[in-house]
């Protein structure tokens, strides 16, 4: 209907211009491989944060297992591209599908759990995934899987970030997305209004895991080497910190959070101990002074309902 309205065309244009500028700067040598590495890491973190935000920020299901989905995606794409020699796109799709199946599997038993119990269960799930990887020789055990072809580049990363944001944003702006927010707000009332909370909880775990799997594929095929430790509990916490920092229930917040915290990590790269301290301090300050996160649950103009990315503007 109104797919190609002015706002959408402007959004698409903005997306392409950002891409072109980075490409151009890369060709001119302004963006060297070090900056590119960080751009890709930021992109991966955006995908992870936005997808976790769907689960934790919008639907209110506290999860400490997001890195496990990433791990499943990374190993899947690693196997598909390195061991089977298939193209990257196959690796990405396989990573997303296998991770989302894991999302369904973890979603079902955790349905009866809330709050702390859910957090502990998802944490346990993450550890199980790690232990399985450590004990599986086919994927290199504790040593890890290496010689994964390096396919990930700026182009793949950027457009997969755009795809993730586009899909999750649109989902949220539909009645399905509103149902998820209602579950966060009051589960009993949501049920009484006809929302099948079981279905939606599994659905958001599935979608969230799908994109975490894609992030894993990007990671594996960028670094060529993955090991079970790369996706442990601390990685899940990292992602959660980004989401809380940016604002539970704000997609723009997750993007800003991913950029800000990735940059902080870059500056503190040589002193990793300090990085965790700074993370803890940031989290503390946010909890005390701005518990709703930098953005609260507000979206930036670009992402606003009336402002674009395909937003439905008919609610006058």
């Amino acid at each position: 209907m109104k797919i190609l309205n002015k706002k959408n065309i402007l959004s698409i244009l903005a997306i392409l211009i950002v891409y072109a500028i980075v490409e151009l700067l890369t060709h001119l040598g302004v963006i060297d491989s070090y900056i590119q590495l960080n751009l890709i890491l930021i992109g991966i973190n955006i995908i992870l944060a936005v997808s976790l935000n769907l689960i934790t920020g919008f639907t209110g299901q506290f999860s400490l297992g997001h890195a496990a989905f990433m791990s499943i995606g990374a190993y899947t794409s690693g196997i598909v591209t390195a061991k089977l020699g298939l193209p990257f796109i196959v690796g990405i799709i396989a990573a997303a599908v296998v991770a989302s199946i894991a999302g369904i599997i973890i979603g079902i038993p955790t349905l009866r759990l809330r709050g702390d119990y859910l957090a502990i269960a998802t944490l346990g799930f993450g550890e199980i995934v790690k232990i399985i990887a450590i004990n599986n020789d086919y994927i290199g055990g504790a040593v890890g899987l290496n010689d994964i072809p390096q396919y990930t580049n700026w182009t793949w990363t950027y457009f997969l970030v755009v795809l993730t944001v586009f899909i999750i944003y649109n989902f949220i702006k539909s009645y399905h997305g509103r149902a998820c927010i209602a579950i966060r707000e009051d589960e009993i009332a949501a049920e009484a209004m006809g929302v099948n909370t079981t279905y939606y909880k599994i659905l958001v775990f599935t979608i969230g895991a799908f994109f975490a799997g894609i992030a894993g594929a990007l990671y594996a095929n960028y670094f060529s080497f993955i090991k079970p430790d790369s996706f442990g509990f601390m990685k899940s916490v990292d992602i959660l910190v980004i989401v809380v920092f940016g604002g539970l229930g704000s997609i723009s917040g997750s993007i800003i959070g991913a950029i800000a915290l990735s940059l902080i990590s870059v500056f503190l790269q040589n002193i990793p101990e300090l990085r965790m301290v700074i993370y803890a301090v940031i989290l503390f300050l946010i909890m005390v002074y701005r518990p709703q996160g930098i953005m609260g649950n507000v979206e930036l103009k670009l992402f606003n309902k009336k402002g674009g990315l395909n937003g439905y503007a008919g609610s006058k």
Partner: peptide
């Protein structure tokens, strides 16, 4: 006990 979706 009113059960609205408070932040909506």
């Amino acid at each position: 006990n009113i059960r609205l979706f408070k932040d909506m």
